[in-house]
Amino acid sequence: VPHDWQSPPYEFTERQQRSWDIVWHQAQAQEDSPDPMDPEDAEPFELRPIEIAILEFCIDLLRQKIRNDEYGCALICATAVLGCGEFGWATPESFPPQISSIIKIARFFVLHKALRLDPESVEIRRGFAHRTDRRWFQGDMVDMDDYTYEADEGYSSAPATPTRFRGHSPSSSSVLGPFTQEQRRHPRRTFPEWVKFMVDAFMVRGTNGPVQWLLDLRTYGMKVFFNTPSEGHIGWKDGDELLYKQIHFTMGDFRGFVHGLVGQMREQLVREL
C-alpha cells in the first residue's frame, strides 16, 4: 500500500507474503459480503475464514528462522515498538509483562493450530463445549522422525507475484475448511503430538527463531528490572506527614492506629480467654 512514512527495514518471507495476501483478500471479501457463518449452526470454537487466515499468518511469523540480523524478522521488528509510548520510552519494569503477554498469545496460537490439525478436531471441540468426560488424548506418541518439516529459513520473499484465490465451500465432513498438506500426509497425528512437535520446532530456546529472541529478551529485561532501583513511593510533608501513593497520614495518626489496634486485641483476648 503506498504511504508517505518510511517503512521498517524488514521484509516478509515468501511463505509469510502468501499468508498475508490471503489475510488481505479475506479482509476485503468480508467488507463486500456479510459473515456466512450462522451462530446457531456453527461448531463450537469455530473460526471465521479471516480468523483462520490470521492464525496461519501468525504461525508463519513464529516459525521464521533468524538469519544474520534478528531485526530482519517481521515479528521481532514489530515488537521493537512496544517500548515507545506516547510520552517517550517505557520504564524497564514494563517490558517483561509485555513480552510475556506476546509469548502467551503465541502459545495459544500453537494450541489452536495443533487442534485444527487433529483428525478429530470437531469431536474434541464438541467435547470441550459440552464438558464431556471422554479422554481424547490417550494413546502412545507416534514417531516424528518420518515427518519432514518445511521450516521457514527466514529469507526475504521473492519478487511479488499475483496470488490467485478461488472460492471454497467447506464440505459437510469438515467444517474447518480445506485440509493442509500436513493433514493429508499424516492424518493420524493427534493434538498433543502436534503441540509437542511445533513447540520443539519454534517455541523454545535453541530454535533460532522469534520466540527464542523474546525469551532471551524477557530474561534480560527481568535482570535489568531487578538490578535497577525503582522510583520510591514514600514521601514526607512538613516533617510529620507520611505520603504513600494515594494515602497520607501523620505520625500521630499512625500511633493512634497502633494503640487502638492493641486495645482491641486485648479486649478480644479477655473475652475469649
Rank of each mutant, 00 (worst) to 15 (best):
residue 148 T to G: 00
residue 142 V to Q: 14
residue 69 D to T: 06
residue 10 Y to V: 04
residue 4 D to P: 03
residue 123 E to R: 08
residue 256 G to W: 06
residue 84 C to T: 11
residue 161 T to A: 12
residue 73 C to M: 02
residue 60 D to I: 02
residue 55 L to V: 06
residue 72 G to M: 10
residue 26 Q to I: 01
residue 130 H to W: 09
residue 131 R to D: 09
residue 35 D to I: 00
residue 270 V to A: 13
residue 105 I to W: 07
residue 85 G to I: 08
residue 263 G to A: 12
residue 221 G to S: 15
residue 178 P to G: 01
residue 38 D to W: 02
residue 93 E to Y: 08
residue 267 E to W: 01
residue 64 Q to C: 11
residue 223 K to W: 15
residue 32 D to R: 14
residue 191 F to D: 00
residue 218 R to L: 05
residue 225 F to D: 14
residue 229 P to L: 03
residue 176 L to Y: 02
residue 99 I to R: 02
residue 270 V to K: 14
residue 95 F to Q: 06
residue 193 E to H: 05
residue 127 G to L: 02
residue 126 R to V: 03
residue 70 E to C: 10
residue 257 F to I: 04
residue 93 E to D: 12
residue 238 D to I: 00
residue 181 Q to T: 12
residue 113 K to D: 13
residue 191 F to P: 01
residue 23 V to F: 10
residue 37 M to A: 04
residue 199 V to A: 05
residue 81 V to L: 12
residue 200 D to V: 11
residue 11 E to D: 10
residue 70 E to Q: 11
residue 115 L to C: 13
residue 122 V to K: 04
residue 177 G to W: 05
residue 223 K to V: 10
residue 237 K to C: 06
residue 261 L to R: 02
residue 127 G to A: 13
residue 7 S to T: 11
residue 23 V to S: 08
residue 31 E to W: 05
residue 243 L to R: 14
residue 121 S to R: 04
residue 141 M to A: 13
residue 150 E to R: 14
